[in-house]
Simulated scan of single mutants.
Amino acid sequence: MEIAKRTREILRENDLRLKKGLGQNFLVDTSILDQIVKVADLTEDETVIEIGPGIGALTEKLAQSAGKVIAVEIDQRLIPVLEDNLAAYDNVEIVEGDALEVDFDQLAGGDYKVVANLPYYITTPILRRLLEEGFNVTEIFVMVQKEVAERMVAQPGEKSYGVLSFGVQYYTQAEIEFKVPSSVFIPQPKVESAVISLKTLEKPRVEVIDEDFFFKVIRASFQQRRKMIKNSLSKAANINLSREVVEQALEEVGIDSRVRGEKLSLEEFAGLSNKLYRLKKEN
């Protein structure tokens, strides 16, 4: 049966109305589902955690390739539907829970990959949690809004370059795998999507003295993109540094004080934040 037709029937039979507040857009194109599984490059001895399985279309494809699939669904109305649709697969575990709260490591019991068609409204907090909290996730393959994917892989000077670019590239090797039109979803979102792969690095891409301070410096530099970096940093309440200290740091690491933050690389921000951190301790 055509997947779109089957999805509509399941929703109708179970009297399910999709919740806009949960960002529920179900993928109903078999070729796209197959592409996601292909780029995830799963083997029979791997565990996959899927976030937001919906009614299980992608879950079923994952179960055919991975050793174990753990599907985490927040909408309790969908749990019996998932259990029914995936009854034939003994390697699928369905967990009712909030992906912003569950302990992924405890669920998986070892290394694992994450695959998800993420609701747009929780894309950033989910990824921040996966990357910042030290989970044993080796690779992440997620469907996100196309513009968000472009921000994740953006390079210095590009329009999409910003705080998200640094957060993702500090922890992972990011690559847009393919773009996805809105027509392959029920209901159709108003924007296009993309599947992005994030391969977690053994250690962060650059060395910083204090990660929290490093990201504060980055956020301060992008709060007003048109400002020169010396002005952005010297007026940033979250780092509380004098103009003299900022100018000294920029000079000592060889960065033009008139440059905008959007022109600086991850490596340059690492060097600058380390210098600022040391000067802040001295003053």
Rank of each mutant, 00 (worst) to 15 (best):
K227Y: 06
K227H: 12
M228C: 06
M228Q: 11
M228K: 06
M228S: 08
I229N: 08
I229G: 10
K230H: 14
K230W: 05
N231P: 07
S232E: 09
L233F: 02
S234T: 02
S234C: 07
K235V: 01
K235S: 10
K235T: 01
K235C: 05
A236T: 00
A236N: 02
A236W: 00
A236M: 04
A236S: 09
A236G: 08
N238F: 02
I239F: 00
I239A: 05
N240E: 06
L241K: 14
L241E: 14
L241D: 15
L241F: 09
R243F: 06
R243T: 11
R243N: 10
R243H: 08
E244P: 10
V245E: 13
V246W: 00
V246P: 01
E247N: 07
E247W: 00
Q248P: 06
A249N: 08
A249F: 03
A249W: 02
L250R: 01
E251R: 11
E251Y: 06
E251G: 15
E251T: 07
E251S: 15
E252M: 07
V253L: 11
G254W: 00
G254A: 09
G254Y: 00
I255S: 15
I255K: 10
D256L: 04
D256P: 01
S257Y: 04
S257K: 06
S257Q: 07
S257I: 04
R258V: 02
R258G: 11
R258H: 05
V259S: 08
V259T: 02
V259A: 09
R260M: 06
R260G: 11
R260E: 07
G261H: 01
E262M: 10
K263I: 08
K263L: 15
K263S: 15
L264M: 11
S265L: 05
S265G: 10
S265H: 03
S265Y: 01
L266Y: 08
L266M: 14
E268A: 14
E268D: 13
E268V: 12
E268Y: 09
F269S: 15
A270Y: 02
G271I: 03
G271A: 14
G271Q: 14
S273H: 04
S273N: 09
N274D: 14
K275R: 15
L276E: 14
L276I: 04
L276P: 09
L276G: 13
R278G: 10
R278I: 03
L279N: 13
L279G: 13
L279H: 12
K280T: 08
